[in-house]
Design a protein around this nucleic acid. Structure first.
Length: 154
DNA sequence: GATGTCAAAAAGATTG
DNA sequence: CAATCTTTTTGACATC
């Protein structure tokens, strides 16, 4: 039950490799698609440096049999798209954070109402919950129960 | 170099 | 199953 592991390249009739370099009249140039290998190498390089110096660019270019310009563009796109995804993630986290803060607020208001109701009744005291959450790591801290010497920071 | 946009190609979803 | 419509991915450029 494990067929189909994504056949590597070459779908119909070898439309891979260098389909560049051939600009006839300079008209119907089709859009090249990088091979698995090429994008893998580029991806690995991107892990190390998001920005290349001319030297590295040149190196990658002829290692991958691409024009330096193509490598340059690839990195530009990669940077932009990577940033976009990161921003989307941050948006989702902030949204989640807001949601939890909102709920905390709801609970606290409910508690206040409850306390107000007892004001004229039996004198009693409840520990008000004081919660804080780090927007980055989503760590929640209760300043009443968790304020021991282990006030670690994150 | 970042950002916005276009368009080709591939991947997915629909329908007959 | 495949022809077709829709969405996503991505190589390339133009602008700033």
């Amino acid at each position: 039950m494990k067929d189909l592991e994504l056949d590597i390249n070459q779908i119909p009739s070898g439309v891979e490799e260098e389909c560049v370099e051939k600009e006839f009249g300079g008209l119907p140039r089709k859009k090249l698609r990088l091979t698995k290998e090429q994008s893998h190498v580029l991806e690995q390089s991107f892990k190390q440096y998001h920005i290349l110096n001319p030297k590295q660019k040149e190196g990658l270019a002829d290692q991958l049999k691409l024009k330096p310009r193509q490598v340059e563009v690839w990195f530009q796109n990669r940077r932009a798209r990577s940033k976009l995804k990161q921003t989307e993630m941050e948006y989702k986290n902030l949204k989640k954070w807001f949601g939890s803060l909102n709920e905390q607020n709801r609970k606290l208001k409910k508690e206040v109402e409850e306390l107000r109701g007892r004001k004229a009744g039996p004198p009693q005291q409840l520990p008000a919950a004081t919660l804080t959450m780090c927007p980055r790591c989503q760590h929640v801290t209760n300043t009443f129960l968790d304020k021991g010497p282990a006030a670690r920071k994150h």
